[in-house]
């Protein structure tokens, strides 16, 4: 680094570039270093805060982490003969959970499509209202499902409908955003072609836009179905119907009913894996299979 100590006016062209380059590199490394340091401090301080505000400490908990699964598994093995019966018993609740997710995905994607089309420049029916529809999707996306579900449970009583409405609203917001991103990449020439032969707005969208975006929409919709099945199971745990509700009941009875909880765990796991596999196979076909 002796050449770096030379006075600046001595530098030839190449040296000046080298000097600048090294200075910039060092500056960038400094920034990166500071950023990483801040990140580490945040992580450590955050962990400390979370640990101190938790009922049980991290290190004690770490030793007990396998106690509950071990209890459940040992009880399930002990009463293995009951498992098939419990699994069959959980199926109606499972179907309800899947129905909640499927209907919510359908309705949510329907509204999401509407918001996306009305909120995309070039496609919107009322261009002046584009920001309005965008804000609506933003707000729908921001409200967690559990909030809407809990309020609706108070009004409508327990059952699948509050969960379905809650998930559908959130899905509409999330899909509205994803779909409008797809819409932005649409080739507008078919739309203009249809406009030139006098097609009205709905026909332009139906024949000019949807054929282009449908594979993408379907692929996002399937991904959302996976997410929504998980969400619907969780909402069941907070009081809406379905498999989550059964799981909470089995859990509150505690020891002695863990074989039932184990059966529900198995059913939930298998469902998620199966839906995951089917949806990724279909999505693969949609994106790579072509016709």
């Amino acid at each position: 680094m002796t050449d770096m100590t030379r006075p600046a006016h001595d530098l030839t062209g190449l040296d000046a570039i080298r000097h600048d380059y090294l200075r910039m590199t060092r500056q960038r490394q400094l920034y990166t270093g500071v950023l990483i340091l801040v990140f580490i401090v945040l992580m450590v301080a955050g962990f400390d805060t979370a640990d101190s505000r938790n009922a049980g400490g991290f290190w004690e908990g770490l030793n007990q982490i396998f106690d509950f699964p071990a209890d459940v598994i040992s009880e399930a093995i002990e009463k293995a003969a009951n498992l098939p019966g419990h699994i069959m018993g959980a199926l109606p609740a499972l179907i309800e959970t899947i129905n909640i997710a499927a209907v919510a995905t359908l309705i949510g994607c329907g509204f999401g499509t509407l918001f996306a089309v009305l909120g995309t420049r070039g496609l919107a029916l009322w261009p002046a209202l584009i920001p309005v529809f965008r804000r609506i999707t933003d707000i729908l996306r921001a409200i967690p499902e559990v909030v809407i579900a809990l309020v609706l449970i108070f009004v409508m009583g327990g059952g699948p409908v509050p969960a379905m409405v809650a998930i559908a609203l959130h899905t509409a917001g999330a899909m509205g955003k994803l779909f409008s991103e797809v819409n932005e990449n649409v080739d507008l020439r078919p739309v203009e072609g249809l406009a030139s032969v006098g097609a009205n707005w709905s026909l332009r969208i139906w024949l000019g836009v949807f054929p282009q975006v449908l594979p993408n929409y379907l692929s996002y919709g399937l991904m959302r179905l996976e997410v929504n099945i998980r969400a619907s199971a969780i909402l069941g745990f907070v009081g809406a119907g379905g498999i989550g509700y059964e799981l909470r009941n089995a859990m509150t009875f505690g020891q002695g009913r863990f074989d039932e909880a184990a059966a529900i765990f198995i059913v939930l796991f298998v469902t998620i894996v199966v839906v995951d596999q089917i949806s990724s196979a279909v999505r693969h076909k949609l994106t790579h299979g072509g016709q």
Partner: peptide
């Protein structure tokens, strides 16, 4: 990924008790 967040949440809250760390 297959074991749902719900199941992890239940298992962990048994071990660590209620709170943000869990």
């Amino acid at each position: 990924r297959g074991v749902d967040a719900l199941i992890f949440t239940i298992i962990l809250s048994r071990a660590f008790g209620p709170g943000p760390l869990t």
